[in-house]
Nucleic acid binder design. Structure first.
Lengths: 245, 245
DNA sequence: TTCCATGGTTGACCCATGTCAACCAAAAAA
DNA sequence: TTTTTTGGTTGACATGGGTCAACCATGGAA
């Protein structure tokens, strides 16, 4: 909690109502009158430096977080050091839902770049959700969406081959950048090959080779973390038509 | 909805308060006074025959379900026919949370044996959760637990080798049977090798071979779906000490 | 500017798991 | 009962992706 910046009432007034991430974040779909009530919800903002944790496995759960700027990864570690990246999160997305079940976080959330989050104290969220129907509903949707997303990742990990996984990953990133007003075809990845590999259940060499093959086939242009999608349809076909494994 | 059995007020009065699955199900941890209010929540029960769907991908979402008897699998299908089993559910566990996000179910829920569920109309649940704090809290915990569980499966799929996955699966089943008052060491699996394989991201032959190897090593006794765990510690060690892959 | 550290690429080789096929066992159907 | 179907086991072989190693590129530090 060290880097938490408590914010004056003035600066956070209309925190959500004025935020340009409204459409992507927890308050999506709420009415204006409902939105006004959200001002009570954001108690503070917090800046996290690149590579620093927002929270760690085992730390007590007291808040969830909405990403204002930057991006994160979440991961789970095994005793023997193996790491499984369980997700990459971008602006407007919610972190910390894993903590509700046991009042302890069950994964690490690490900033991929210097980032800022809105701190949503969970007790306050529950309280407000009981009064504001739209907030309750949206919060449930956010949790459900996370479950659906996780099922998609299981599909990736359990049933797809290396190139399909990477193609699905790129299309997913593209779609999320698009939703944030960036180009669907051109973006900078914030994570390393190793982190992509961990997420996709592959070794970094395999990720690197798949990128190279995509480039050879004219599907994308890759320059380290810079990605340009040349043939998005080709990537989609790769996923659909590839033989079962 | 065809097989839904609307139940008379009398028969469902105290539906939850009297249910012996209380400790495993949604109402866990609620106070007695809170529990009394749950009677309004269970609108009907529904019987599902083995192999029949409780709901399907794409069907409109209107309720979640608590399993009273029997068990289910949930799966996601790709256009090309590939199946990913995303989970196996036992008594007291909640099905249908995937539907909240888009008001459409995003997976299939199939009965592994003749089963019965309590139908919890979602609109009613939200309504009641706004009034009954304990219900709200428990519901959030159930969703969060599902997210944490899914992360565990990602760990399995992304970072563990075949035998580790199966060992983790067996230990998980054992633990869940135990929680339901059955033997930790002896149980009947309700799913086929193919379904286990799909869940674990393996082919059924690989599952079968891993079972055989466990048996050779004296860790378990396997007779088709009947499992007897001889050396649970051995299974645990298998997961912890196996070299990274 | 040069140096160093980190991250990325590529090649050669290997092994865990997939594929294909035969056969067996149990349960369901006739 | 016998027959059929479905599910499970096992073997032989193939291959996708892992492992190990060398090298390259980039960006930050000095």
């Amino acid at each position: 909690m060290k880097a938490t910046v408590p914010i004056t009432a003035a600066s956070l007034k209309k925190a959500c109502a004025q935020c340009n991430l409204l459409e992507l974040c927890l308050p999506f779909g709420m009415t204006d009158t409902e939105l006004d009530r959200l001002d009570e919800l954001i108690s503070a903002r917090r800046k996290i430096k690149r590579q620093q944790p927002l929270y760690r496995t085992g730390s007590p759960f007291e808040a969830i977080y909405a990403i204002r700027t930057g991006s994160f990864k979440t991961d789970v570690l095994l005793e023997d050091g193996r790491e499984q990246v369980t997700g990459f999160q971008m602006t407007g997305e919610i972190l910390g839902l894993d903590g509700i079940s046991n009042e302890i976080h069950s994964c690490n959330a690490i900033a991929l770049e210097d980032s800022e989050v809105c701190v949503i104290v969970y007790a306050k969220l529950e309280e407000l959700a009981r009064e504001v129907e739209g907030l309750q509903h949206q919060f449930h949707k956010v949790m459900s969406r996370e479950i659906v997303r996780d099922h998609g990742v299981m599909m990736l990990l359990g049933s797809m081959r290396a190139e399909e996984r990477l193609a699905a990953f790129l299309l997913n990133m593209s779609q999320r950048f698009t939703a944030r007003g960036f180009s669907p075809a051109e973006f900078h990845l914030r994570m390393t090959r190793e982190e992509i590999g961990s997420y996709l259940g592959l070794k970094l060499e395999t990720v690197s080779r798949a990128f190279s093959r995509f480039q050879e086939e004219g599907l994308v242009i890759v320059q380290q973390k810079y990605i340009r999608i040349i043939n998005g349809e080709g990537l989609k076909k790769l996923i659909q038509h590839q033989a079962a494994r």
